[in-house]
């Protein structure tokens, strides 16, 4: 079964509750996407004001996680969802956790942005941050899109992207290590770039997790920790 309908319950309230759960998760997804975009822009532009805004918004992301999770718990208690409804609730609950962690990574990137701007000047490795940043932002957008449309195919298509990001991360590390060996005075600044890249790479992992939940939701198959790609 590769189609998913969340409406047409005998109980219209149940339809509404599930729909609400989904749309609130997507709302949180939108907020997190903006956090990531702002944090990365702050690094690139050395904009510490923007970075501070990201830090402020972080609490909103955390609050959404708690309240959506509570909504999911209540829905389980009230409706005892089964089959696709149950998978929907579980998937939302898991994705919300991943989104919250993406929010944490955005916060880390924003903190680095502040430090980097204090140190002044574009550090080495900024190209890598921009490149990988674009990759994971796309992954995140596509994973949320796949969730919104219950599109398992689209979700599976995102998975290979994560491997690309991982490879890029490895090669960026090699490059940054070379910088540090060439110029030991740059070590602390390059390390900040490295932590930023690590945070970006983690965002890719979370986007991948969301895609796996889309496959679980739509097809009822748990592909976590497997090699399944189709």
């Amino acid at each position: 079964m590769d189609k998913l309908q969340l409406d047409q319950h005998i109980s219209k309230q149940f339809d509404a509750d599930l729909e609400d759960l989904k749309s609130r998760m997507l709302e949180m997804g939108g907020l997190v996407e903006r956090q990531v975009a702002d944090a990365l822009r702050a690094v690139e532009a050395g904009d510490s004001e923007l970075a501070l805004k990201v830090l402020e918004n972080e609490t909103a992301v955390d609050r959404l996680e708690v309240s959506i999770d509570e909504e999911a718990t209540l829905l389980i208690a009230r409706r005892q969802p089964a089959a696709s409804d149950l998978r929907m609730v579980m998937a939302v609950s898991r994705c919300v956790r991943d989104l919250e962690r993406v929010g944490d990574e955005a916060k880390k990137i924003a903190k680095m942005a502040i430090q980097l701007s204090e140190e002044g000047g574009a550090p080495k490795g900024c190209v890598e941050v921009r490149h990988m940043g674009q990759q994971v932002q796309q992954m995140l957008a596509r994973s949320l899109d796949a969730f919104a449309r219950f599109d398992a195919e689209a979700a599976l298509a995102v998975l290979p992207e994560d491997r690309k990001v991982d490879l890029d991360f490895k090669s960026a590390i090699r490059e940054l290590v070379t910088y540090m060996m060439e110029d030991p005075r740059s070590i602390s600044r390059v390390l900040n770039v490295l932590w930023t890249l690590k945070a970006v790479e983690r965002i890719g992992d979370h986007a991948k997790n969301i895609c796996e939940q889309v496959v679980y939701l739509v097809r009822g198959r748990d592909i976590r920790h497997t090699e399944i790609t189709s």
């Binding site: 079964m1 319950h9 969802p81 089964a82 089959a83 696709s84 998978r87």
Partner: peptide
């Protein structure tokens, strides 16, 4: 399996409270 990922859409519809 039936209560998490049923194979047939009629089963799905009944289990999730769409037909009664």
């Amino acid at each position: 399996r039936v209560f998490t990922a049923p194979e047939h859409e009629l089963t799905e519809a009944y289990i999730t409270g769409r037909i009664g």
